[in-house]
Write a protein that binds this DNA or RNA. Structure first.
Length: 271
DNA sequence: ATGGTAGTCGCACTA
């Protein structure tokens, strides 16, 4: 049977309502089959559904929250089911998953991991404690909920951890900065081990080449300073590793007017 | 060592 190309994009949009025109530009220019959004910053009812419907994305799964966080998956491919989980049981909307209606099936998990505040000590910073607990729960949950359909899974999102030396502009200077501390990287590696997840972005851009998906709003000139971090990720289960054919980090999107501080990551799979 | 920017919802919080 002929392989079908399925293009999946992930983007921390930092308010989907404010940046709906940028989202539409991404959909028009790159035509992903599925777009996973983080930080939509609105409740389900306020999600700009009509814009997505007009653009051909008629299948939409939303896990929204007033003002903060929130994730969604919009798709041209129908869903067989969708699910969401309240990690850490505190009412935060940071996870949603769908199963795509394609031969062989495909489950997509979309995560927005807590940023974790500034101080990398869980004893004095409860936001960092929350981040570590969230990641610990990801490890436990992925280990304890194994089923047959897990063979074909994609995990995307803003994981708020830049794990490798070349995922940050200065490994040495960021070792004590939240997103690049050893305790976070260790936990991320435990999550990866839970399903032998494959880091798709790094299949295409090998170290020591730098790879970033986020540049702070606080830099005077983000492009010239280029003090980025790779906080956004696309992982697949081993059965899908060979199916990833193309990967784009849309750096130019950081320069768009009224940009998000994250840029889209787009991967094409031959499924 | 500090402060720099952005978004939402209100005038504090998260990132």
């Amino acid at each position: 049977m002929a392989k079908r190309t399925v293009k999946i994009a992930t983007w921390n949009i930092n308010s989907v309502r404010l940046r709906i025109e940028l989202v539409k530009k991404l959909l028009t220019d790159h035509k992903p089959d599925v777009l996973c959004l983080q930080e939509i910053k609105c409740v389900d009812d306020a999600f700009p559904l009509k814009d997505f419907h007009k653009a051909g994305y008629t299948h939409v799964a939303i896990h929204g929250q007033k003002g903060y966080h929130g994730v969604a998956i919009v798709s041209r491919i129908p869903f067989l089911k969708f699910d969401k989980r309240d990690f850490c049981a505190k009412g935060d909307a940071r996870h949603i998953s769908v199963e795509l209606d394609i031969p062989g099936g495909l489950t997509i998990h979309n995560f927005y991991v807590p940023a974790g505040g500034d101080e990398p000590d869980p004893e004095i910073n409860e936001k960092f404690a929350h981040k570590l607990a969230f990641m610990r729960e990801m490890v436990d949950w992925f280990k304890s909920h194994k089923k047959k359909s897990d063979a074909r899974m994609v995990l995307v999102g803003d994981l708020n951890v830049a794990p490798h030396e070349h995922d940050v502009w200065s490994h040495k200077q960021l070792l004590k900065i939240v997103s690049h501390t050893p305790v976070e990287v260790d936990l991320m590696n435990e999550i990866i081990a839970s399903h032998s997840w494959v880091d798709v972005m790094r299949l295409f851009v090998k170290p020591p080449e730098k790879l970033y998906s986020w540049w702070s709003y606080r830099a005077k000139d983000w492009d010239a300073a280029d003090k980025g971090r790779r906080l956004d990720h696309v992982w697949v289960t081993p059965a899908l590793g060979e199916t990833a054919k193309e990967m784009t980090v849309l750096r130019e999107a950081r320069g768009w007017e009224r940009a998000s501080d994250h840029v889209p990551v787009i991967v094409s799979f031959a499924l």
